[in-house]
Design a protein around this nucleic acid. Structure first.
Lengths: 243, 243
DNA sequence: CGTGCACTTGACGCGGCTCAAACATTGTGG
DNA sequence: CCACAATGTTTGAGCCGCGTCAAGTGCACG
């Protein structure tokens, strides 16, 4: 049974107890495993009939480009997350996804998913839950960019990533390994890279978080949580990060 | 057959041709019709086990509040849209929904939806499509707030609303009736109400759009579309607004 | 040992916020 | 029918958070 312990399994288990049938169907999703180099664009905005992926190893990000060359990162994906799930139903994909690090991911055809829905209804519910959770995260990012200051936004993002990584087993309340550059953070938070740098310095000087050398350290988790107005209810997971 | 012609039916038909069975199941969703006054909060953030609604008449908005009393509107809902669909699977609702005008909406229980999934698979796909489309709109709002100027954001929002209303039969390429206040626009666009007013004046003086007296008039649709970088592919609907 | 990429810091300007004050419109109760 | 309160719109003055531009540092890699 432990053989099935993929990050996705681990994540979905936070929502429902999966049956043997569910696990089997889930295992079938993990055939067709592929590797991509850092920077590779797996899914291209405007493309048609593309399949989705389940991320097994490494980090990715989904984003949209603007005509002036600016980029808005919509979300980051960590192991256990789907890539491109939303637009399997669309005529044309509405966003792009690229590998932040070297990644390993399993390709999933739309038909796999729909067939799975028929044979493993509990799994179907779990996948819908995962999709709803993804949307809830996007909504929270919207709130951040719309109404929170740069410091608060940054704090919120780092806390969210920490909580998500705990759920799949990487990272704990002291921090996590983070391959993002300050440019990634800027594109995700709607800031300039220059300002991201200043924000990080400020948070470090306040003794709240340290972002350095591919590592995020939570120096004052309660203080950071207060600053960010971070409440992990929207992740709908039992929150060992805070409790 | 025309008896079934609800806004939702009309919207879903832009995605798939619904069978008689589908229409019947859909009709069953429209029992339990209720009326709410403008300003009434149908769904409350943090609440539990709430049902969803299908909006039949009037406008609503979904939003999140921040501790300092600020509000971020995530999206507006017009006839044919679901209210609170995303969090039927969640332990606690992650956002609130309130009526902008007096509205009529049909209450839908989670069980209705899941049972419908089993009996009318094509309808299930159509509902997933609608949910994906809702998410795509949120993503586009994120891009707007993150990377577009105030003028561009406003233009984009008004164009999106116009396109959505065309799909359900209200509004055309000349404009649409719009019950929103400038405060609503401010909360949706991450701006202050004062600045919204200045933006609207500017767009009016440029001869692009007029927002006055509950009516939006597209004075220069191509110009507005260019300004906003508006491409309605993300709505995944055949776009009579632009073609 | 040079070339590129990520990070860092300073100077300066602007878009959008805040505060403040009218004005317009609508609904309400006396 | 009027007074007036409540809500929405409009405009000005001043300021600040964050963007832009510019220059420089550190480090990894070929």
């Amino acid at each position: 049974m432990l053989i099935h312990e993929s990050p996705l399994t681990r994540k979905l288990s936070a929502f429902v107890a999966l049956s043997g049938d569910d696990l089997e169907t889930l295992a079938r999703f993990h055939q067709r495993r592929r590797t991509f180099q850092a920077g590779h664009e797996l899914i291209h905005e405007g493309g048609k009939h593309q399949s989705a992926f389940i991320l097994a190893e490494g980090w990715a990000c989904s984003y949209k480009m603007l005509p002036d060359g600016e980029r808005q990162i919509v979300d980051f994906q960590v192991p256990g997350d789907f890539l491109g799930l939303r637009s399997v139903l669309f005529r044309a994909t509405d966003h792009s996804v690229e590998a932040v690090t070297r990644i390993e991911a399993s390709e999933v055809l739309a038909s796999d998913i729909f067939d799975g829905f028929a044979t493993a209804p509990r799994l179907a519910t779990a996948i819908l839950w995962a999709a709803s959770r993804d949307e809830a995260m996007v909504v929270e990012h919207l709130v951040s960019i719309g109404r929170r200051s740069a410091d608060e936004r940054m704090a919120h993002l780092l806390l969210e990533l920490g909580a998500r990584l705990m759920l799949v087993g990487t990272g704990d309340k002291t921090g996590f390994d983070c391959p993002l550059t300050q440019y990634h953070l800027a594109d995700a938070l709607g800031l300039s890279a220059v300002h991201v740098n200043r924000v990080l310095r400020h948070l470090r000087e306040e003794g709240l978080v340290t972002f350095q050398k591919g590592r995020v350290d939570f120096n004052d988790l309660p203080g950071l949580t207060r600053l960010a107005d971070f409440d992990l209810d929207y992740l709908d997971q039992d929150g060992p990060l805070l409790r």
